[in-house]
Amino acid sequence: MDQLDYFSVSRRGVLASGAAGLAAGSISPQVAFAASTPAGERAITMQTVSMRINGKAQTLDLDTRTTLLDALREHVKLTGTKKGCDHGQCGACTVIVNGERINSCLSLAVMHEGDEVTTIEGLGTPENLHPMQAAFVKHDGYQCGYCTPGQICSAVSVLKEIADGVPSHVSAELTGPMEASNIEMRERMSGNICRCGAYSNIAEAMAEVAGDRA
């Protein structure tokens, strides 16, 4: 490999290999790490976990430290789900597990044995968009797009939470049906940050889908 080839490694390739080195590669990492663990360092533990991701059964052999987010991106290669802050503050990593939205960065993959995980790739396809995806396109609910997969997974879940009677901080009444009002959607989406500030358009997109459902 000449020098030019060496430097032509893509940015994504570098990021992926860096994360894989931390998490787990495909070349029997347990043996490799165990053999090279210096005295006093902790040995890495590998664990097998099976879950259904977007309807497809997946069995993964992972370093126990691997988050659901890294498992999705680096192991299953579903890169639609994004890593923003990696600390549960921005919501870019939001996915739907067993029907509820969660921050996939704050959840260990090994704790999802038997779970049903839905990512942005599982909501719809470019040819057959989920109504929320179509509404985001129609209402321009994004600019750079980085937070969008998390926004959409969250938005879909918010409408379900409202339908299920989950209260929010701005709900006037705790009992009885919850409203899909603008103020409700803004409060319920506060765990998803958009640096570009597409919030008002996101709320418009959600209002359209909520209205169609009502």
Binding site: G88, E100, R101, I102, N103, G165, G191
Partner: peptide, 29 residues
């Protein structure tokens, strides 16, 4: 917990406190 009908009816301060904290994603977990 915040959505439980008995909590909403009889212990509303608890429902209100929970939904005043964190985000929807975090409260689910």
């Amino acid at each position: 917990l915040a959505s439980d009908e008995r909590v909403k009816r009889d212990y509303a301060v608890l429902s209100r406190a929970i939904v005043a904290g964190a985000s929807g994603q975090l409260r689910n977990k």
